[in-house]
């Protein structure tokens, strides 16, 4: 694989008549964290959701342009979205564990992607829970309901769950914004750890968080990609004035 994990070319997303994302072209480097920032409704979440074709679930949504991942344009209607979503994990703002046991939550996706052997599956579940630093907290109650976990634990479980299908890319839509500061810190540590193995795209409203955890930052405004650069440069010396205004809290 090249230096880039994937890239978009003139990607536009429409909800009915409304254009939510305007011709965004971005490159996402391998094993780096890219933060998407911008005021609410600027299209960053929509953009994120089109990277694994989750917008397919919204009847009025329509995508134009290209997203290239490992030699495939995933916007092609013939794309096998099941395979695609196996390569790209996703985590939401609200943790959404299934109403199943902790073990079953992690094993769920893996079962559909070839890991059926019971021993293998157990090893995979343990590995994913260890990666998300959950193992020590839940190893004695793997077969209890995931809904009994705390919000932060649930969110890490959802990350573990997506790791279990062995993706190379992780999409995170405000993964820590519903969590307390301690849980947030844990998620951030986890992201720093995970970027050794995965390319991560994270939407966040928290400027400090973007500055802390990301390598590159993209600023979206009204559906346009305004500026995209190294995080350090974006936060210290952005090229565009609106980026500076947003980052320093003068609007948005």
């Amino acid at each position: 694989m090249s230096h880039n994990a994937f890239y978009t070319k003139n990607l536009s997303v429409y909800y009915g008549e409304k254009q939510a994302v305007r011709k965004v072209s971005m490159e996402f480097p391998n094993r780096e964290v890219v933060a998407l920032i911008g005021p609410s409704g600027c299209g960053k979440s929509t953009f994120l959701r089109s990277l694994n074709r989750m917008n397919d679930l919204i009847p009025a949504a329509r995508i134009e342009g290209e997203v290239w991942i490992g030699g495939d344009n995933i916007c092609d209607p013939n794309t096998d979205v099941v395979r695609l979503r196996q390569r790209i994990g996703m985590v939401w703002q609200r943790a959404n564990p299934f109403h199943k046991s902790i073990y079953e939550n992690v094993a769920f996706g893996a079962r559909y992607h070839g890991t059926r052997n019971r021993k293998e599956l157990a090893a995979l579940v343990e590995q994913c829970l260890r990666k998300t630093a959950l193992w020590d907290e839940v190893k004695d109650r793997l077969h209890q309901s995931a809904l009994a976990l705390s919000g932060g634990q649930q969110q890490r479980l959802c990350i573990a769950r997506s790791l279990a299908v062995r993706p190379s890319i992780l999409l995170m839509d405000e993964p820590a914004s519903a969590l307390d500061p301690v849980s947030t810190a844990k998620i951030e540590e986890l992201i720093a750890e995970l970027k050794k193995d995965y390319s991560i795209v994270i939407v966040t409203h928290n400027m400090q968080q973007a500055a802390r955890i990301s390598d590159k930052t993209a600023f979206f405004f009204l559906g346009d990609l305004i500026e995209y650069d190294d995080t350090q440069k974006m936060f210290t010396n952005p090229t565009r004035k609106s980026t500076d205004d947003y980052i320093s809290g003068r609007f948005g």
Partner: peptide, 15 residues
């Protein structure tokens, strides 16, 4: 049904 549950499952590559 919370939308998240369905999306969560689809995002894992479940049909």
């Amino acid at each position: 049904l919370p939308r998240g549950l369905k999306e969560g499952s689809m995002a894992l590559g479940a049909t």
